[in-house]
Amino acid sequence: MTRDQLMKVLEEIVVVVEENKEFFTDLDQAIGDGDHGINLNRGFKAVKEKLSSVRDKDCGTILKTVAMSLISTVGGASGPLYGTAFMKAGAVVAGKEEITVEDSIKIFDEAIQGIIARGKASCGDKTMLDALIPAFEAWKTAFEEGESIEDASQKMLEAAYQGVEYTKTIAANKGRANYLGERSIGHQDPGATSSYFMLKAIVDVMTKGA
């Protein structure tokens, strides 16, 4: 992925978040406090404004800029979490003009570790991790098994999707939905959903670009 593609991906995420902001918020109203879409949209609007100023910078700087924007505008739980994820991602590709497949695995891994370190959740807690971790596993495994980027992308997305579906079946242990206890069962997690949409945005741009 070139720097330009990275920029396109980020711009696509901005669009996707804007388009789905009501959907995310509705999901969050059901089991949280109804601000997930509002939060992310506020954050990615800020990201969009900042992006133009780093258009010529390396991938690391771009990702860190995204991270800082998110951290200083999103708030809530998703702000520090997505912010940390992008921050860790940026560190992996500091100074680089391009992101290789190997980088992408490292980025994914580090981002997830960052989220875990910050939020202390794990798989099955009904959070974004339930989409991200299976997606990461699928992505990594696909490459280990020598699959094409296209196939790997599809498997990754499918795994993320299943992860979102899985969140419907469990009660939350982390985040606000946790306070609902059993009442959160049956509802999909907003953060897992937004994670899925972001992953999908990446894949969409990369396949369109191909």
Binding site: D33, G34, D35, I38, S72, T73, V74, G75, G76
Partner: peptide, 12 residues
């Protein structure tokens, strides 16, 4: 003061 029902950001 964060956004409505949303924790303020670290810089604030």
């Amino acid at each position: 003061a964060g956004a409505v029902f949303t924790s303020p950001t670290p810089d604030q």
